[in-house]
Every structure is written in structure tokens, then in C-alpha cells.
């Protein structure tokens, strides 16, 4: 899909076609201009910025070659943020995808009552503002707040604790809140996926005397695998967009224990007394490379999954 076949054998009618289609390009103008300036240009420009020593938007950057990248590779805080982002990804995505699948299966059963009501409950946090959820949870998770009090009351912990403010648990508190906030949307994906399974399949399995588990294991699951690929990849990309929640919930702290890569970039570029725009761009570019790798895996996975959905 990425090459233009027209280019390889240009027809004679090119100028005439262009002239005849002038209105098409007029329709495309807002998108081409906007997309060019606000999506394509930033993508290319951050590579250029990554090679600059650039202390603020008012200043002029000086080219320093690979110096930013050399510094980054030796910067413990960069690797700390990199590791935190990966830990976040590796724990939060399977949790979100798996929990949502379990819920979807229960909510997809005919026998389950109040399905619409429960779906609404789980979807509610999805529509709310991430930054505000982060702030609200700093209160809910406070040592004298309701979570801590309930845990003490039920005997699960000995003394009041604030999981978002403890270096050992702050990242996991962020993961928990993120899964809580976004579970509902993954639930909707799964419900849509489950509805593609024809009812006849279920009846055939019943006639064959398959139990609920056997039916799920041998009938439902194989049909869901292509969706698993797509949903996992959508949620993986979502797990890279956690700035609003993490910045407001923990601010990356305490002592950088929950600093994900986006907070590292933001802090370096906009919160330092001397902004290091080039250095922050280099970090963005390095991490961007990781997302490119994931995007390629994604494209391949999607193509494979589409094929499976199409053929079934």
C-alpha cells in the first residue's frame, strides 16, 4: 500500500487529468496542509532537532552531531524511564486485554442479567478526562483516603499506605488506575468480536456435548485469535499515551520511580530551567524507533488477522 503504481508508468494524460481533477485537490487541501504541517513535518523535524544543542524556542540550535544520542545512552534517567515504560506495557496491556475478555464473555452470555447496565458501568471511566482522573486518584489513594482505609479495615494491610506516593508501588498504582480507566473500551472491542461468532457454532458445540470450558477452548478461542492480535496491538499503542494520567497521578515520582518516557521528554523540554529541546527530541526519536518496530509488527499482525477474519 505504500508505493504509487501510477508513478512507475506515467500516462500521457497526466497534465489533463490534473487539470480535470482540480476540485479533488481543493477538497484535499485542508487535510494535506494540516497533516503535512502537524503530523509529517513534526515527524521529520524531530530527527533534525535530535542533532541540535537547543536551549529554548527563542534560541537558535547549534548542530552537535551525535552528542545527544551519546549522552542519552549513558543517562541513567533515560534508561529508567525507558524501563518504566516497558514495564508498564508488559504488565498493563495483558491485564487490560485479559480482564476485558473475561468480562466480555460473561456479559455476552444470554443468561447474564443487567448486561447493558454493567457495560455502562465499566465504560464510564473511558469517557472521563485522564488528567482529572489522575488528580482525583491522588485523593482516593491518599493514606487517609478510602482505598487505604478500606484495606486497613479489611486487614489486608497493617497501616495506612499511599501506593501512588511510594517508590516501590507508584508505577503499579499507575498501571492499576490505567487499567481501571480504559478497561471499558477494550470490553466493547471484545463484545464486538464475540458477536461475530455465529450462534450456530455454539449450538453445534452443545449438540456435541461440549462443556462450557471445552467449547471456549476449542471453538470460541480459535475464532478469537485474530481479534486478540488486533486488540492487543491497539492497546499496546494506547499504553504509550499515558502522559496525562501518570503526570497528574505521580508526576513520575517519587524519585523517578514512575517516570515514563513521555514524562522524561516533557520534563527535559519544558520543565527544566534551561530547556534541552535537542536532547528531549533525541529521546523522542529513540523511543519513536521502538514504536516503529511495534508498528511494523502490528501491520504484519493486522494483515494476518484480517486474512483470518476474511476467510472464516
Amino acid at each position: 500500500m505504500t508505493t504509487t503504481h501510477e508513478r512507475t508508468h506515467p500516462g500521457r494524460g497526466w497534465p489533463r487529468r490534473l487539470r480535470k481533477d482540480w476540485w479533488i485537490y481543493l477538497f484535499l487541501l485542508p487535510t494535506v496542509l494540516g497533516y503535512g504541517a502537524y503530523t509529517v513535518y513534526p515527524l521529520l523535524a524531530s530527527w533534525w532537532f535530535a542533532f541540535l544543542d537547543w536551549p529554548g524556542f527563542a534560541a537558535v540550535g547549534t548542530f552537535t552531531g551525535l552528542e545527544n544520542f551519546e549522552r542519552l545512552l549513558g543517562d541513567d534517567l533515560f534508561w529508567n524511564a525507558f524501563r518504566n515504560s516497558l514495564v508498564f506495557l508488559v504488565i498493563a496491556v495483558p491485564l487490560r486485554v485479559g480482564l476485558a475478555l473475561l468480562l466480555a464473555i460473561v456479559l455476552n452470555r444470554k443468561k447474564t442479567p443487567f448486561k447493558g447496565f454493567f457495560r455502562t458501568l465499566f465504560f464510564l471511566p473511558v469517557v472521563t478526562t485522564g488528567a482529572i482522573v489522575g488528580v482525583v486518584f491522588t485523593l482516593v489513594l491518599d493514606a487517609s483516603g478510602p482505598v487505604s482505609l478500606s484495606l486497613v479495615w479489611s486487614g489486608l494491610i497493617d497501616s495506612p499506605a499511599n501506593f501512588a506516593a511510594d517508590a516501590g508501588t507508584s508505577l503499579y498504582a499507575g498501571i492499576a488506575v490505567w487499567v481501571w480507566k480504559w478497561l471499558g473500551i477494550t470490553l466493547i472491542y471484545w463484545l464486538a468480536a464475540l458477536q461475530t461468532i455465529p450462534q450456530g457454532v455454539h449450538e453445534a458445540a452443545m449438540i456435541d456435548g461440549a462443556g462450557a470450558w471445552a467449547e471456549f477452548r476449542h471453538v470460541t478461542m480459535p475464532l478469537l485469535v485474530p481479534f486478540l492480535v488486533i486488540i492487543t496491538l491497539i492497546d499496546t499503542v494506547a499504553a504509550f499515551n499515558v502522559f496525562d494520567l501518570m503526570q497528574t497521578l505521580t508526576g513520575g515520582g517519587p524519585s523517578f520511580s514512575s517516570e515514563v518516557i513521555e514524562i522524561f521528554i516533557f520534563r527535559t523540554a519544558f520543565q527544566a530551567t534551561v530547556p534541552q529541546l535537542g536532547y528531549a527530541s533525541a529521546a523522542a526519536v529513540l523511543f519513536g524507533l521502538l514504536t516503529v518496530v511495534l508498528a511494523v509488527v502490528q501491520a504484519l499482525g493486522m494483515r494476518w488477522a484480517r486474512g483470518r477474519i476474511g476467510s472464516s
Partner: peptide, 23 residues
């Protein structure tokens, strides 16, 4: 055009904030 759309489909916003601010 469609090729460019697909390549940039999943670009996370945090990584382009510096050039967008500069622009």
C-alpha cells in the same frame, strides 16, 4: 496519500510535541 496515512496512523502524540510547539 493513503500510504502516508497508514505509516503515521499510530504516532503517539507525546513524541511530536516539541516540533508542534516550535511550529
Amino acid at each position: 496519500l493513503i500510504g502516508i496515512f497508514l505509516v503515521t496512523f499510530f504516532l503517539p502524540e507525546g513524541y511530536t510535541i516539541i516540533p508542534i510547539t516550535q511550529l
